[in-house]
Amino acid sequence: MMEITCVINGAARKIAFEPNEKLLHVLRREGYFGVKDGCCEGHCGTCTVLVNGRPVKSCMMFAAQAKGKEIVTIEGIGTVQKPHPIQRAFAEEGAVQCGFCTPGMILSTKALLDKTPNPTEDDVRNALDGVLCRCTGYHRILNAVQTSAKYLKEAKK
């Protein structure tokens, strides 16, 4: 058993796990079910979380590597009552169908827009490259990212 401290969604946490456990499974055990367990081999991207602001597939990290890191999951950015502007944009653009890829899509979008508030379509495609969606055909997701950029700018005014 190992124990580390890290920051999850803004709160300092102490978590315990075995060395062979991935960050993905430890986060789910801790109750962060927005971190989805998909392919578990680095392809689908639905387990994406932000680690120190960068989108990372949590199935490609051991929990041990999260020591001292700041982790953000989908639970950390908004709620049903008070959605994040990106979440509102995804809902309003119809970019959510089955919803399984959505946490990865939204966190990848957040990482993009935090750095690049006015992304080109190429920037958006590149940023979402790591997350697969089998429902929407991606068009509505691409639209949702542009709408997110707009909402975020409005929120700053």
Binding site: G45, P55, M61, S108, N126, L128, D129, G130
Partner: peptide, 9 residues
């Protein structure tokens, strides 16, 4: 190389 998220690691 691979995708944006994997390239972070």
């Amino acid at each position: 190389l691979s995708d944006q998220t994997l390239r972070s690691r």
